[in-house]
């Protein structure tokens, strides 16, 4: 039990990862796939931030009277990763729109069926 509580961040990260991954794999709506992708990425962000936490440290902001602060590098990295994630999401959604325009559906199995008909 103590293992769970002391590493609660890690457990949550793993849980999110699994949820996101499930949403990705389970066949279905393309928008839901994008949501899954986002949850999956969010879990990694959480993981990174957790690495950077120094117990008892404050936020890594330049100010007087702080001796102990958390490692700022993971924050910087994750800022970058979040930007990448946003870009991925927007591109993904744009593709979903295009798919809807040309296929008339955003259900994965229906698209697969339409594709298989096209193969001559």
């Amino acid at each position: 039990m103590e293992l769970v509580i002391s590493h609660i961040n890690y457990w949550v990260a793993i849980l999110l990862m699994m949820i996101g991954f499930y949403a990705l794999i389970a066949r279905g709506n393309l928008v839901k796939t994008i949501v899954g992708l986002n949850i999956f990425q969010a879990s990694v962000f959480l993981l990174y931030i957790t690495f950077g936490k120094v117990s008892g440290g404050t936020a890594p902001i330049l100010q007087k009277n702080t001796e102990l602060y958390s490692n700022p590098l993971p924050h910087v990295l994750i800022l970058t990763a979040i930007v990448v994630g946003v870009a991925t999401t927007s591109l993904g959604l744009a593709l979903v729109v295009r798919i809807y325009e040309s296929y008339g559906t955003i259900e994965e199995d229906e698209i697969a069926e339409l594709d298989s008909k096209e193969e001559d």
Binding site: L37, G92, V96, Y103, D115
Partner: peptide, 22 residues
């Protein structure tokens, strides 16, 4: 039009790959 769905598949798998790497 299959190019778009191929791109989407690639996006999902590519992002998973990159995130694994991360």
């Amino acid at each position: 039009r299959r190019a778009v769905s191929a791109a989407f598949t690639y996006l999902v798998m590519g992002t998973v790959g990159a995130t694994f790497f991360l």
